[in-house]
């Protein structure tokens, strides 16, 4: 088969481009691999006490402890599971209330002051997301004491960032015409909010809240590790009494709760959108 090259210069420039691209990719991947080697030597090779792990048998023995399920724990699981679920629900709703003012401040078209309050709203969103839920829980445990309340507050604070960010973006993207129409027929500020803005952002916000609720179940399951109630507390107690079968039971309960939450949120989101 003969192949005639009609535009040798074009082919040459194409080849040149390809060579340049290859060099670039090689450099990027070489850099990544060198960086990984440095990380591996720093964190894993130097920092690990290999003799303590005890080779393959030690690891296998460590894992196999978890397989003897402790079925006696079953009746004790019910109330913490309910608590975890309720903490997630209440925390999400509280988070919605907290995120209303933040979204109002952080949406560019409705914010009361663009120079001072808009950056403040944006900063609050980032602050809420950048602090991990465990750290929030620690702060609230020291502020309001042990129990379910610090867990609820920590979940609420952690949810504010995501919910208010999406809400603010939804408010920024609304259609201004219904708002003007309601103003034109004499609606007051509240009626503009309730009939003009709310119906437009309502599906997006509700879907986001349901999504966040799904994640919050996951979060509320670990709140007990730092002193708030729920399944985390039971996990912590089973772990500290070296009852590994009980630990597996708690993890199974968490899995069940989360699968349930995922199914519910899937159908709810379908119903909303």
């Amino acid at each position: 088969m003969f192949l005639t090259i009609q535009n040798p210069q074009g082919v040459a420039s194409q080849l040149d481009l390809r060579r340049k691209r290859l060099t670039k990719m090689t450099l990027i991947w070489g850099g990544i691999i060198l960086f990984i080697a440095w990380c591996v030597s720093g964190t894993i090779i130097q920092d690990t006490d290999w003799s303590r792990i005890g080779g393959r048998n030690g690891v296998l023995a460590g894992i196999s402890r978890y397989f003897w399920l402790d079925l006696n724990l079953l009746p004790e699981l019910i109330i913490p599971t309910l608590e975890t679920f309720m903490m997630a629900c209440v925390g999400t709703v509280l988070g919605c209330f907290f995120s209303l003012p933040v979204a109002w401040l952080g949406a560019a078209n409705v914010t009361p002051s663009k120079t001072i309050l808009y950056p403040l709203g944006r900063f609050l969103m980032v602050l809420s997301r950048s602090v991990h839920e465990i750290v929030w829980a620690l702060i609230f445990v020291s502020a309001v004491g042990l129990g379910a309340l610090p867990g609820i507050l920590a979940i609420a604070m952690r949810s504010v960032g995501f919910i208010s960010k999406i809400t603010a973006e939804a408010i920024e993207n609304i259609d201004a015409k219904p708002v003007e129409a309601i103003r034109a027929v004499g609606g007051n500020q509240f009626q503009v909010m309730y009939y003009g803005i709310l119906p437009q952002i309502y599906p997006v916000v509700l879907a986001t809240v349901i999504f966040e609720w799904d994640i919050n179940i996951r979060r509320s399951a670990v709140m007990g590790l730092v002193g708030a109630g729920g399944l985390g507390l039971l996990f912590f107690r089973q772990m500290n009494s070296f009852n590994y079968g009980g630990v597996s039971m708690v993890i199974l309960a968490i899995l069940l709760l989360i699968v349930l939450g995922e199914v519910i949120s899937h159908y709810l989101r379908k119903a909303v959108i």
């Binding site: 920092d47 303590r52 792990i53 670990v222 590790l225 772990m239």
Partner: peptide, 28 residues
């Protein structure tokens, strides 16, 4: 994917610490 996602990272840490011991290997 679902079971990795469902369990919170702190619980993974505790489990790995109990098998591999304290240190960054468990964290990684």
């Amino acid at each position: 994917v679902i079971s990795c996602r469902a369990i919170h990272e702190t619980i993974w840490t505790i489990l790995f610490v109990s098998v591999l011991g304290f240190g960054m290997l468990a964290g990684v």
